[in-house]
Design a protein around this nucleic acid. Structure first.
Length: 920
RNA sequence: GCCCGGGUGGCGGAACUGGUAGACGCGCUGGAUUCAAAAUCCAGUUCUGGCAACAGAGUGAGGGUUCGAUUCCCUCCCCGGGUACCA
């Protein structure tokens, strides 16, 4: 009987569920291993064949580790709050909880068919109040903490209050966005409200005003990627920048720790580099410039203080707070016009502009060393959000400053002699200082040190470190997210008592924002307005809130007392291996690391970093199928004929195409536009072109795993996904190719089961050759799994089965270990054969076999013989033959003699067990 | 522009530390089986020449190191991802 995957897979999936074999418990007798997949957002479209790629890899890896004796945690859950469900709710009026629930059911059904080993008793959903109780709890801890830069850790805010009461803030080095100085008596004289507002400057979760993309027509705030060219992507309505009071998380306090810990992580180098760039640490100096006729000083940030004698003008961001004071009456009109011009431009436009523009303010700054007058300009190339929003312009050593100087005819003073460094660009930090007074003759690096010392001594500047990274906006004016456990009294935010958590997301009558532009939750006045006069926060938390700590919850997902028990956390500690898409390189991975470090400071988790090893799985792309429509006609032509007409390419459903030939019948029934169309074939066939691109409904190239599994089975599907190529690479899906692994599984089956379903495996001694094949495979598969090279594992299995088949091997001594090592890849067929073989318990609880070195030792080797590096023939020689004896033997070889043509070889190189090269 | 990947048959890919380039599979070609087809099995399949033995070329292009380079070094081209007037 043939291998009946449908029956086998259903049987064993039911068996595993019934026996609960994937249930994981803490077990001190075994080493722990935590394997994690990035949990999915359950979209309405369901899974396509690209989604499970990483899940299959971790499934194989975790099954392997547990057969090797580890206690493996491999959980799954759902990132269930998010924009698409809310958008759908706005369009249909359906509650997002309901559609989310339905989508999760679809996902679980689809995942179930693939045969994963998740411990579903540990499933979590970020939208479940039992889960987000602890998301809210962590937020409260952030709210109640400040960051002590000296101790390099978060501390309770009460300790900061105690310090303020005793000595003010002068001896505190805290992460803060305020530079206000105050003494103990000044602090103690403040009202309760003033104290509360001032503390916000120090909390790790704080309120501040910031600009958002406000779309008046939609009455809502838009994410950056929902805005195109200053208009909303949906509907094309104008979008303006609007100031709103919002929650922020002080991630910048952790910038250095986030940066330096990267070195210790086993992550792809490219991903670590992205995080480094995102943090964007730079070392330089703050310099204070006097302004002619003004009390106030202008603070600038520069990484090149050494070039200060080359500064010939200053540039401010058009939003700079000092601008009004610096603008003289005569320049007022021009400045205002320029500020207006910049206001209308989106950040993206401003940043992409290649044309230099700017306006003189009328004021002059004074050079701190020479006292020279430096005109102060404004220009859009200086950004208010970076550094201090003001620069000293050094046209000799900065390309943008140079272009600006050229356009406005400002002087350029060369200050760095780079003649010792041919090829150095103007912004490279190399060279010898010239025209720079006391810096003359110094190397750039030395000059930086010297000039900062001078500036500090003169009280005109200081060493300073700057980051590109900014605090994380944590408010969303949306419904489908975690409510903030915050109540305002007299505009001051107070935390809810932890006993009141979770603060459950209330019902509302419509998912739209209110008419006056407040978040949707404001619609439920009963919920918002408390009897004691308190007003609840109506913003909700962003998507990354719930995903920043979910890996901890899996350790103990049903705990109502703590986010996870101390014992569970002490046992599981951190994620050993994390698999997910590269699109989360900076967002999710940065926030999760930040939260983890905070929880470490709180003493809740024992490790500084959450994810020890990380791999990005590549994307499985779709193959779009393209046909050509003749312009202005209801006529389509086969691909070879497209150049005879003016044509437009059109994508058709990938399922209508077999071997590049289109099934016209199916196409005609697909859409009315094809019903009566004319089709011109070539050689009786209608051929299509193929384009590899993202798998998406839009391109009609989506392949659903359910269909593939129905036709070929889950085991074939799993192995084929792995066989496609290296896990990190992008590669196109081609359903045709699955035939290969499907055939392989049938061949594999026939080693065990005969045509009439008879059991072929015998308890006989295996031939040495068969044992060689087996042990070679055990070794290769084991080491390839360790390095996540799963595609080569599959081909190793193919080679093994081909060889065993040719050898007519039916010995249990070989076929028992073979079932075990294939079990992680094809868990169903392995379980079936294991059980038929009379194996104890599940094959997935069996031990991973050891390979036996004795079968891998060879006594002879067929050496390739090469002449001048080109292989000419082969020769079988004993591996223990001494080199000079080999040389002699080789020279007797007729093919080699022919190539030597009677001459003596210049050299004979023997690499034992590898190759022999004769140089003539 | 900068940073990080990557360019190998018709296609997906293999070659782990410099040692037989193209494993494994798809597709294609021919054959067996079949009334026929599907399925299955067998053989061939980098390119060029040759019936073949064999010879020449060949891992994006050019150069270098080496007995030997897909692998190391230099220059350049192309593709993918990230990022940016970041002072």
């Amino acid at each position: 009987m043939d291998y009946n995957f449908a029956e086998i897979e259903a049987r064993w999936q039911a068996y595993w569920k019934e026996k609960d074999i994937y249930r994981v418990r803490e077990d001190e007798t075994k080493p722990k291993y935590y394997v994690l997949d990035m949990f999915p957002y359950p979209s309405g479209a369901g899974l396509h064949v690209g989604h499970p790629l990483g899940y299959i890899a971790t499934d194989i890896f975790s099954r392997y580790r547990s057969m090797k004796g580890d206690n493996v945690l491999h959980p799954m859950g759902f990132d269930a709050f998010g924009l698409p469900a809310e958008q759908y709710a706005i369009e249909t009026g359906q509650h997002p909880a309901k559609t989310t629930e339905e989508n999760i059911a679809t996902y679980k059904r689809q995942l179930g068919k693939i045969g994963f080993n998740y411990d579903w008793s540990r499933e979590i959903r970020t939208c479940d109040p039992k889960y987000y109780k602890w998301t809210q709890w962590i937020f409260l801890q952030l709210f109640k903490s400040w960051y002590d830069k000296r101790a390099q850790r978060a501390r309770p805010i009460d300790e900061l209050v105690a310090i303020f009461e005793k000595e003010g803030n002068r001896n505190v080095d805290a992460a803060s966005h305020s530079d206000l100085d105050f003494s103990a008596s000044e602090w103690n004289a403040l009202s309760e409200k003033e104290k509360a507002l001032r503390l916000l400057d120090y909390r790790l979760a704080y309120l501040a005003y910031s600009e958002v993309n406000w779309c008046p027509a939609l009455g809502t705030v838009l994410a950056n990627d929902e805005v195109r060219d200053g208009r909303s992507e949906r509907g094309g309505h104008p979008v303006i920048r609007k100031k709103m009071r919002q929650w922020f998380l002080r991630i910048t306090a952790y910038a250095d720790r986030l940066l330096y810990a990267l070195d210790s992580l086993d992550w792809p180098e490219s991903l670590k580099e992205m995080q480094r760039n995102w943090i964007g640490r730079s070392e330089g100096a703050s310099v204070f410039f006097d302004i002619e006729g003004q009390e106030e000083k202008l603070e600038i940030y520069t990484t090149r203080p050494d070039t200060i004698f080359g500064a010939t003008f200053m540039v401010l961001a058009p939003e700079h707070p000092l601008l009004e004071k610096l603008t003289t009456a005569s320049q007022h009109e021009k400045v205002e016009a320029y500020v207006d011009y910049v206001k209308k431009r989106s950040d993206i436009e401003r940043q992409q502009e290649k044309k230099v523009s700017g306006v003189f303010t009328g004021s002059y700054a004074l050079h701190p060393f020479t006292g020279k007058r430096l005109p102060v300009y404004i220009s859009e190339y200086v950004l208010i959000a970076y550094g201090t929003g003001a620069i000293m312009a050094v046209p000799s050593d900065d390309e943008r400053d140079q272009r600006f100087a050229q356009k406005y005819q400002l002087p350029i003073i060369e200050v760095v002699d780079r003649s010792d460094y041919p090829g150095a660009k103007i912004e490279d930090k190399v060279g010898r200082m010239i025209n720079s007074d006391f810096l003359n003759g110094l190397e750039v690096k030395e000059a930086i040190r010297v000039v900062i010392d001078r500036l500090e001594a003169a009280g005109r500047g200081k060493r300073s470190v700057n980051y590109r990274m900014r605090d994380a906006g944590f408010s969303r004016q949306r419904y489908w997210g975690e409510p903030f456990p915050i109540v305002y009294y007299d505009d001051v935010p107070y935390p809810l008592d932890e006993s009141e958590l979770p603060l459950v997301l209330p019902e509302i009558d419509s998912y739209l924002p209110t008419e006056d532009g407040r978040a949707p939750l404001a619609r439920n006045r009963e919920w918002v307005e408390l009897p004691d006069g308190g007003i609840r926060e109506t913003d909700t938390m962003p998507g990354y809130a719930g995903s920043s700590w979910y890996f901890i919850r899996y350790m103990d997902p049903h705990n109502d007392e703590r986010l996870a028990s101390e014992e569970a956390i002490a046992y599981w500690r951190d994620v050993d291996f994390y698999m997910g898409g590269a699109e989360h390189a900076v967002g999710h991975l940065m926030y999760a690391r930040f939260w983890h470090k905070f929880l470490y400071d709180m003493g809740i988790v024992p490790t500084e970093e959450p994810f020890r090893k990380l791999i990005n799985q590549g994307m499985i792309q779709g193959q779009s199928k393209i046909i050509y429509r003749v312009n202005d006609e209801n006529k389509f032509v086969s691909r070879g004929l497209k150049d005879r007409y003016g044509t437009t390419p059109i994508r058709v459903n990938v399922h209508f195409v077999d071997h590049d030939e289109l099934d016209l019948e199916q196409l005609r029934n697909w859409r009315s536009e094809f019903k009566d169309a004319e089709f011109e074939c070539e050689d009786g066939k209608f051929l299509v072109d193929t384009e590899v691109e993202k798998m998406s409904k839009r391109w009609h190239n989506v392949v659903n795993p359910d269909d593939v599994i129905d036709r070929y089975g889950a085991d074939a599907f799993r192995m084929y996904e792995m066989f496609l190529g290296p896990i990190e690479d992008h590669k196109p899906w081609d359903t045709q190719g699955i035939d290969g692994v499907s055939k392989f599984l049938r061949k594999f089956w026939r080693l065990y089961v005969g045509d009439n379903d008879e059991w072929l495996v015998k308890d006989e001694k295996a031939a040495t050759g068969d044992l060689k094949i087996l042990h070679k495979t055990i070794r290769k598969v084991g080491s390839d799994i360790e390095r996540l090279s799963l595609n080569t594992c599959v081909s190793a299995f193919m080679v093994c089965v081909n060889e065993l088949q040719a050898a007519h091997c039916h010995s249990r001594e070989v076929l028992d270990p073979l079932v075990r090592i294939i079990a992680p890849f094809a868990p169903h067929i392995a379980e079936e054969l294991w059980q038929r073989m009379g194996g104890k318990g599940s094959v997935h609880r069996a031990e991973w076999p050891q390979y036996d070195e004795q079968y891998l030792i060879e006594s002879e080797f067929e050496y390739p013989l090469s002449v001048n590096g080109k292989v000419r023939t082969k020769m079988l020689l004993p591996l223990d033959m001494p080199k000079d004896e080999i040389s002699e033997k080789v020279l007797e070889n007729p093919v080699i003699r022919k190539w030597l043509d009677g001459k003596a070889p210049r050299k004979v190189i023997v690499v034992p067990g590898r190759i022999i090269n004769i140089v003539v």
